[in-house]
């Protein structure tokens, strides 16, 4: 299990390459990458991501452990950035490996649902001199009930 919380960009290709190394018993690797999406008006200047340093690592480890207990996983990777990010930048990624694709897909989906509403990150949008906190959606909380 590898959990990284950092301000700097990460190299997606290198991370995926490294993640799969040396595990010939893992037939499936699933990855997901979250990207800062511009708003509909196309005037998002930046997304600022705040986090709770003491808690973030612990919360992410718990989410990854819960996924590992539930699915047959070889490994789990979570990278999540904080700080000021511009549209198009990668915010975060997860990767899961498993002997079979179903477990890898489901576990990645589970990780994303829990990262949305159980990991202590908060997003603030900066648009043309204004800034506003992104509200959590009811649908994010509802998504947890799937599991």
């Amino acid at each position: 299990m590898k959990i990284v919380v950092q301000e700097a960009p990460f190299n997606f290709a290198a991370e995926v390459e490294d993640f799969g190394q040396g595990r010939a018993d893992m037939g499936a690797i699933v990855t997901f990458t979250g990207v800062v999406r511009d708003n509909d008006a196309g005037d998002l200047d930046a997304m600022e991501i705040e986090h709770y340093p003491g808690m973030t690592q612990k919360a992410l480890e718990k989410i990854a452990s819960d996924a590992s207990a539930r699915w047959d996983l070889g490994d789990v990777l979570i990278i999540h950035r904080y700080g000021r990010l511009e549209p198009g930048e990668k915010i975060m990624m997860v990767a899961t490996s498993s002997p079979h694709r179903k477990d890898a897909f489901e576990a990645a989906d589970f990780l994303m649902d829990y990262l949305k509403s159980r990991a202590p990150f908060w997003k603030k949008e900066h648009t043309g001199g204004d800034a506003s906190w992104v509200d959590a959606k009811d649908s994010d909380e509802d998504a947890l009930n799937r599991w």
Partner: peptide, 24 residues
């Protein structure tokens, strides 16, 4: 660790308040 507003504060050293999280 996430908790709730009814929870006792016995032995607690750090309390954090925040809005619902928006990670991912």
């Amino acid at each position: 660790d996430l908790s709730d507003f009814d929870a006792p504060l016995d032995g607690v050293r750090e309390v954090a308040f925040f809005p619902p999280m928006t990670g991912g």
